[in-house]
Design a protein around this nucleic acid. Sequence first.
DNA 1: TTTACTTATGGTAGCGCTACCACTATCGTC
DNA 2: GACGATAGTGGTAGCGCTACCATAAGTAAA
Lengths: 374, 374
Amino acid sequence: MAMQAVMEGLKPQGYIKRVKQRGGNAPTIADVAAQANCSPMTVSRVINGGSRVKAETHEAVMKAVRKLNYKPNRAARSLAGGEQLRIALMFDNPSASYLAEFLMGALDEASSNDIHLEVQSCDNASEALPIMRKLHDGGIKGFILPPPLCDNQAVMDLANELDAVAIAVGPGKATDAHGSVIIDDFQAAYDMTKHIIGLGHSRIGFIIGNPEQVASGRRLSGYLAAMNDAKLDVIDELIVQGRFTYRSGMAATESLLKVDPRPTAIFASNDDMAAAAVAVAHRQHLDVPTDLTVCGFDDTEMASTIWPELTTIRQPIRQMTASAVSTIARIVSARRTSSNWPTEFTTLPYELIRRDSDAAPSLAKRTSSGSGQS
Amino acid sequence: MAMQAVMEGLKPQGYIKRVKQRGGNAPTIADVAAQANCSPMTVSRVINGGSRVKAETHEAVMKAVRKLNYKPNRAARSLAGGEQLRIALMFDNPSASYLAEFLMGALDEASSNDIHLEVQSCDNASEALPIMRKLHDGGIKGFILPPPLCDNQAVMDLANELDAVAIAVGPGKATDAHGSVIIDDFQAAYDMTKHIIGLGHSRIGFIIGNPEQVASGRRLSGYLAAMNDAKLDVIDELIVQGRFTYRSGMAATESLLKVDPRPTAIFASNDDMAAAAVAVAHRQHLDVPTDLTVCGFDDTEMASTIWPELTTIRQPIRQMTASAVSTIARIVSARRTSSNWPTEFTTLPYELIRRDSDAAPSLAKRTSSGSGQS
DNA sequence: TTTACTTATGGTAGCGCTACCACTATCGTC
DNA sequence: GACGATAGTGGTAGCGCTACCATAAGTAAA
């Protein structure tokens, strides 16, 4: 400590670094300022966008920064910079597989933007309402709402009432939120259906998802459109209602396999139902994919756990939540300056993951067995 | 300064809240102090462990905290309190279901203890090594290592070499880490086996887990001990090797069901293999649980997704990671003061979750059907 | 030249919290 | 009863950074 003071004595006229009260030895903005022979303010300006700084000064500062390997202190930054943005990630979705990806994406983005992310679970949408109120009172400025929360009108209404920024991630009624991050469910289902048709199938069963989630309808539409575009008959019996659960997938598959002639492929609106379809098929001694092609949607863990692994649609969940976090940040800061309410709707690309549960219909005698692929 | 001095003159004797320079309206420690009629210091003391504070004062402060819904400002805290503890949660476990729980537990604990948690994924253990080095260079003081990372000798060696605190969560060689948080795998497997025996089974098949994970052996031992204690013959053919994967569970089950007379129950070392056992049984037109009882281990999402839902062992994963985080915090701070290396080994309670996949053997004609339970 | 305005920089005062020390009561202890 | 301990509290000074204003130049308009 005293030593440091001695060292300062050598300095020409720069900003004297105070003796540190507590441990720690990371370079501070003052160190950089001394090194670059300017004031800490100038350094701050350079670091934060370099507005109104002479080019030479700018460069001198940058050189000092590099030399000292200076990293701005997050804590100090957000303390000095006024309010720290705090947003909440709510969920009542029991799917752990989603959740992990959700968290990873949100966490990364939040921590690199110095945003405080509160993670809140609740058992159901109605329980979410008081929690949201409380969080909002506690200074939470925005909410990230994955389905099914974002499909709940009461939740979205409350977000509106509170003037909080709500971003729906994944399927949801985009129009109700201040923003949303989605994939194109319609197009994804369209592509998958087209893929199945391309394998040679024409009797393709479809299991609809939970009617309360908007994505279900979009996926159904995609299926229908692809069938129509391929000039294939849409057979009512081959479209059955499910509820996104394994159990509902079993019932749906049983009813599909009773249709005569039975479908040669089943496209389920999510992986859990697709897994159930595989199980039911196996019980009826139908091989997958030789006798029956089964495709899912979401690429949850289930899809790559069971055998055969499912051909499915992967949503870039991580990027989606990351994008949700940064969108909220943008909207909140935009609202601070102007009073209008910007909204942002982002659509991210999905991916058709081909695994081992699809093949050409069996009349073709298993010529092209599903070629695995991660 | 001068202005402030003037303002001070007006002060009665309480702490006047200064006019805020920038936006923001979250209650500060000064607000609480005013409310509780004491100094900010006292509030700080109460918040941070309440040492040397009179009981009444303590209560008054807590009341004020509750009334104002005061939350300490993280940034200010870590800025004032010197270095913030940073620890990393590494994982190469592909199981998303675990991961979600892991993250939730660690996150909660980290955020309430103002610890910065870095979440790092890596594809395999050897990739982990350079990452750990880098994180350590970057100031990470401790690592949380779930299996299979903590079963990897190279990883544990590196942690030792780096002088970093490593806590193994879940199964692992406790002795290699500075601490571990586990459940008693032996006892849990013992209990489950005893439970199955209690239902009336005597020919109980067992599927061993991945031989590279220490827990596998412990679970096997538990099974063997329970069989012995019940004076039941341990039949070699009824113990088959698996690898914790669905696929290996299928193969194992197929071989188990070939044994004559076939087992009336199968205890798999994890849920994925148990789910595979159910699938194989169904394919062979054996009803679960009427014809075959199947029990798993871990209570992953899979267990409650498939039908019938699995009777299994639940690990308190959330508490386990939470405990891991606080253990690291304790060890790191202990090391700061004394130079000896404390270690901490925690064992948390598991829970046998009874669902619908177990029943008395079929000779008893499905008298006691599995009584569901969350 | 003066006024006005722009550009580049510095000074100062905090952000909300805690470390550190100082101080007052209330105890023993000899 | 004087003395040092100890519990309980308050004051002060920062942590590293940025908002805000002041200043000192230079540049354009009057």
